[in-house]
Design a protein around this nucleic acid. Structure first.
Lengths: 301, 301
DNA sequence: CAATCCGGTGCATTCAATGCACCACTTGGA
DNA sequence: TCCAAGTGGTGCATTGAATGCACCGGATTG
């Protein structure tokens, strides 16, 4: 039981370190022992899973398959444990989420707190990932759920729920744009603006919309942090961008935000998803249900 | 590696024997050792998986989940091994099929021989199962593929290919029915007939069709063996029933078979399937492709 | 009430996994 | 050109986890 997944953990360590000796140090065992474990595994498995290089080792295609298999196995064992805990009355479990930054300030804390209020035995892990990384995160079983804005590829991403989210401009209450009845993209671009990096969905939508009207997004500050965007607009009279779920009408009292007219930009999609075909643990799938419900209520509100 | 799946094999033995001591004898170890392995597993897993009864042990719901998990794991490991063998150029693998009796005399031997001719490294296991057992066989990972006539439930049965098969009557060349242009059900029932047991699809279709015309199937011999049916019609001048894939125009020279008119009976379906959502090994999925192709060619012929 | 079968446990034993020291080899820079 | 540093792999002594044996307490069964 333990022994087996332990060997797999060591194999993962070797793959990560790129060398048996380094991995042995990281795992607090001798290189000799680790070398033997690997050799024994390869012998029993029937084929090498690492190519031996002069400066270390590297996973071969067989190794990639093996790694994927054991990750799936470990994840499925966690699901079984969760289901067993559930049927014995103890609401235990662990939920891992990969999400966009927009969910961090308001939505996810609320959701997690609400769920843990009902099921205190369930713990959470939140990994902040951009939309490209999110799917890889699911496929490698490092995360159970993903909640991302405008993910690119969707081959192994099974959508559990989707809501539209228009890109919003945000600025201080005394900004010239604060009084406009309808906010046009060109107005925002005419003012100094701060925009997220290209890898983010908000920026992607901005770039596309700007190109369509013959303009370009030319931010005075470009950043990977939406937190920086939120706070920066309070220091320089600039226009920031974010989706509504990452903003709050009540908080950030000095700021207002308005959706950019859908004549200029179609709303993007915020997707809740899991790895295609995977069976989630009880705790995870109930949390997913709760999140989907919350998203649905939000889009009608 | 070995150790782990070994423990699981022992747990399976306990579940099968219903007692630790019996399972220990079957597995050629002492009851003490087996008891300790189970205790250690339950301790590390975090919950009992057997209920202790006065006369032995029995799997509890948690145990059912654990068993299912390890069966899936073992099967997936076999798939990985098959894929690794495949990418190293060695066409190795093992294919397990649950099938109806009709496939035994002609179709499956041809298909397996043809496949093994191209890939001699692949071995086969053929389990004869009725349509009820076939799906259970897939779900418990005891078989990779199922090829059955008119299976009942289809909840975990993913259909890979389907062809219609009319029920045929078979008799000797000199039987009074041998000259009819169109064969009606009532004609068959008017003669002495030998029919398969109720659990088989052919009998199910016969019963339903007979009921619709106000008749009943009243066999002079009822049997679980289609082989018996095939040979019996040569000894008494009786009418037997079987689907075409279980019969051969060339062989059984003394016999002829004719489809029963579809005015009386709609054709049943012969289904090739796997467990829903499961990823098959390379060898298995290629064999499935070959079988599907052969079935397709057969239905146009 | 005795026989029998069950799961569980203390104790001595054994064998596989480990750590240590060392080898052969490649690489990169003094 | 050569040496230091790093790599994977191996023989040997040691240790600890898994095993087998003997036995216990309890429940069923006749």
């Amino acid at each position: 039981m333990m022994q087996h997944l332990d060997t797999f953990r060591l194999i993962e360590a070797i793959a990560r370190a790129g060398s048996i000796r380094k991995a042995a140090e990281d795992s607090n065992i001798t290189a000799s022992a680790l070398n033997r474990r690997l050799a024994r595994f390869e012998r029993e498995f029937g084929s090498q899973i690492f190519e031996r290089l002069p400066r270390g080792v590297r996973l071969n295609p067989a190794g990639e398959l093996v790694l994927q298999h054991y990750r799936a196995q470990r994840s499925d064992l966690a699901r079984v444990k969760s289901q067993v805990a559930d049927l014995s009355g103890v609401r235990r479990g662990h939920v891992t989420i990969a999400c966009s930054q927009a969910l961090l300030p308001f939505f996810l804390p609320q959701q997690i707190a609400a769920y843990r209020n009902a099921h205190p035995g369930v713990t959470f892990a939140v990994n902040v990932r951009d939309r490209e990384q999110a799917e890889a995160e699911l496929v490698s079983f490092r995360s159970d759920l993903a909640l991302v804005f405008e993910p690119r590829v969707l081959v192994d991403f099974e959508v559990l729920h989707a809501i539209p989210q228009p890109v919003c401009a945000l600025f201080t209450r005394d900004h010239p744009l604060a009084d406009r009845a309808e906010l046009r993209l060109r107005d925002c671009l005419d003012h100094p603006h701060i925009a997220p990096a290209h890898k983010y969905g908000v920026r992607g939508l901005l770039d596309m919309a700007a190109k369509r009207v013959g303009r370009t997004v030319a931010p005075v500050v470009e950043t990977e942090s939406f937190e920086l965007i939120r706070y920066y607009v309070m220091h320089e009279r600039a226009v920031g961008f974010q989706i509504p779920i990452g903003l709050s009408a009540e908080q950030d009292t000095g700021m207002v935000f308005r959706p950019i007219s859908d004549r200029d930009m179609p709303p993007g999609n915020l997707l809740l998803g899991q790895m295609r075909g995977r069976v989630l643990s009880v705790a995870t799938s109930r949390f997913a249900d709760q999140v989907a419900l919350a998203l649905a209520n939000m889009s009608v509100a």
